[in-house]
């Protein structure tokens, strides 16, 4: 199952294929729904809008595409890309192939922070998005630090310890989140429906609010890829290659946690994206983060767009939380990785 380095398709080819694949996924996901809209109409409508050729030329279809479906599809893409990129970052920094925002407790910590913000008297409208994201960010950082400290033995952090500590921190954060909900029954349903991953309230405003943070996290992480490569040699050898190891770790973990926290604030807890996507991409393009990170970003976006489409369509007209779709795909994947890890395979 391990694709040897010689069997890898040209990494740049995969990277190049990622962009049209993502565009196709966006158009396809936008065309499917209660009202089916031909893909050509979708493409034409998007083209008109992005080239500023006026609004509303095509009436109802245009409204559905531009006001209803496209924001949701793009938000799912943004969250998917960010979670996948954060997962790839944690995997690199902790040298732990099982690190995922969900598995190492970051997402649950962010969830707890966000739940506290939601039930608090702080205003919960679009202007309140800042509070939810801020609390989620603080929760994410606290969880990542706590997990790391719990798992540490001396100067090393064994992979299995790290995941176990993540499970413990996640459980504690989830329990605390439940408590927060119980104590605030009035808002419990808001927290609950959001917690399991929800893109139903997507809008251009949400995208606008989130994109500076998310965009900044992408740029910083993509600029650190070659240094993160060196980290795979171990801290000492990375330091002798000119990497300021502690600074690199702190910057990338904080930035990845910021991205995760914004995603959690936007759409709740969506697990396993950060695990499945980087791993699948690594099998395709190899371990070089300079290629792996952009590929992961593109395919993470594509993956969550399709997962959200599944969430909309499987029980239509009823909607499933998208977190259930990703968990259904991700947990068998995780178990396979765990077994391989035990046998010392990549």
């Amino acid at each position: 199952m391990v694709a040897g380095p010689a069997a890898r398709p040209a990494a740049r080819l995969v990277l190049a294929a990622g962009i049209p694949t993502l565009v196709a996924a966006v158009i396809f996901a936008t065309s499917v729904g209660a009202v089916s809209i031909p893909q050509t109409t979708v493409a034409a409508s998007i083209f008109r809008h992005v080239t500023f050729q006026g609004e509303g030329g095509a009436g109802a279809a245009d409204t559905i595409v531009w006001q209803v479906r496209l924001p949701r599809v793009l938000l799912a893409g943004m969250v998917g890309g960010t979670l996948a990129l954060s997962g790839a970052t944690y995997q690199s920094v902790f040298r732990n192939p099982l690190a995922d925002p969900y598995l190492i407790g970051v997402a649950s910590g962010a969830g707890l922070g966000a739940a506290i913000a939601i039930v608090s008297p702080l205003p919960l409208n679009y202007y309140g998005f800042g509070y939810v994201a801020l609390f989620a960010f603080v929760g994410a950082l606290a969880a990542v630090a706590l997990t790391y400290e719990l798992a540490r033995s001396g100067r090393t952090v064994p992979t299995a310890n790290h995941v176990l500590a993540g499970v413990a921190v996640s459980a504690a954060a989830t329990a605390a989140t439940t408590l927060v909900m119980m104590l605030n029954e009035a808002k419990a349903f808001v927290v609950f429906s959001w917690l399991y991953g929800d893109f139903t309230t997507s809008s251009w405003e949400k995208l606008q609010l989130a994109s500076p943070y998310v965009g900044a996290s992408w740029v910083v992480l993509l600029l650190c890829t070659h240094r993160l490569n060196a980290l795979q040699l171990g801290d000492d050898e990375a330091a002798t290659l000119g990497v300021r190891v502690e600074r690199l770790k702190i910057v990338t973990v904080v930035v990845a946690s910021l991205g995760t926290a914004v995603c959690v604030a936007l759409s709740g807890l969506i697990g396993f994206v950060g695990l499945i996507v980087p791993h699948a991409c690594r099998l395709l393009v190899g371990p070089d983060n300079r290629v792996l990170f952009p590929v992961t970003l593109l395919f993470g976006a594509t993956f969550l767009i399709l997962a959200d489409l599944g969430a909309r369509m499987v029980l239509a007209p009823q909607e499933l939380p998208v977190g259930i779709i990703t968990a259904a795909a991700g947990s068998p994947f995780f178990l396979i990785l765990l077994r391989r890890q035990r046998r010392g395979l990549p």
Binding site: P5, A230, L233, G234, E237, T240, R282, G286, D288, P346
Partner: peptide, 29 residues
């Protein structure tokens, strides 16, 4: 310092998934 002096630790890392050429290329950082 890294352009002047190179160091190989006692237990050199063998990060999973790396091909020999990819590992050697890390030295160009």
């Amino acid at each position: 310092r890294a352009r002047t002096c190179a160091y190989v630790a006692q237990q050199p890392a063998a990060p999973p998934g790396f091909a020999v050429r990819e590992l050697v290329a890390l030295g160009r950082l």
